[in-house]
Design a protein around this nucleic acid. Structure first.
Lengths: 148, 148
DNA sequence: TTAATTCCTCAAGTTAACTTTAGATCAAGC
DNA sequence: GCTTGATCTAAAGTTAACTTGAGGAATTAA
């Protein structure tokens, strides 16, 4: 009874394709064991790992970034609710910061007269772009750096 | 003086590569005109369009989704601050909903004893997954549907 | 026990979002 | 006018994140 879940069950429960779950194993996001016949068996907590992956992806995180988050979970034992609460919390905090930047963009528009931008010197957004420009070549991110 | 910005200036101001901006034109995200010599000229408001694209991408929106948002801006005239405020607002509202779902995931963990999940029947997360499962085959999104 | 289903690996194919390359033209400063 | 740097097009290449397909083995239900 407690011999783990086969991959198809994980797929049905999460909505992921079987091939996607196998790919996630390749990328180190889950670590199933094998049964006597060589088939993957997952623990129930992997349902949670996969849910986390799906959610994080919807927010634009890459698989390596997500792996880095998941790697913060304890290695030897099954993660506790406290482990998960901590990781989710730091995660939603990072998102809150991104959102703050988005709201700031919206609010900054109020300083401009229509668009154009007719009053460039007083436009905070314009200045924000100029400030980003001073940081040198290569892509810069208006929202600050990407996570991790 | 008011003959528009060349692509290189847009690139320096936004941090995007010139090739990326040209690609965005192909995808219909910006619509520069051409000068006598056939070179692209952009309006200043395109700086804002591109900033919006960059921000939206960080939140995992695809280019078609972003285009759909930008297409809501008025066609004939330069967008006003009110236009931009409206689009940013609906955008951050969608994100707030996603975040709410994330927080719900975190909070749901409190119903479980450690993990395992030892008390499956009382685990809200487990039930949430089962509910998703009932919606039929194909991928389902724990956070509700993707935007647009 | 047999049939249907599920699973396995490995290699190749796919899509989105770009970048790179090549060869040519345009624009700006001296 | 000339040179240097920016820009042009078109086609091919790249990376992440998967999916698909082939051929075969394991599990499960009857």
């Amino acid at each position: 009874m407690n011999d783990g879940l086969p991959i198809g069950v994980l797929a049905r429960r999460t909505g992921l394709a079987v091939s996607a779950i196998r790919y996630y194993e390749d990328q180190g996001l889950v670590r199933p064991w094998r049964n006597a016949g060589g088939q993957r068996r997952f623990s129930r907590s992997d349902l949670r790992r996969l849910s986390f992956v799906m959610i994080a992806q919807q927010f634009g995180f890459t698989l390596p970034q997500i792996k880095a988050e998941l790697d913060k979970l304890p290695g030897g034992r099954t993660p506790t609710k406290a482990d998960w609460a901590r990781i989710s919390h730091s995660f939603s905090k990072a998102l809150d910061e991104k959102i703050t930047a988005l709201v700031r963009l919206r609010d900054n528009l109020d300083g401009c007269i229509g668009c154009g931008c007719l009053s460039l010197r007083s436009c905070k957004l314009y200045n924000a772009e100029d400030r980003a420009r001073e940081k040198g070549p290569g892509p810069r991110y208006l929202l600050g750096d990407r996570p991790e």
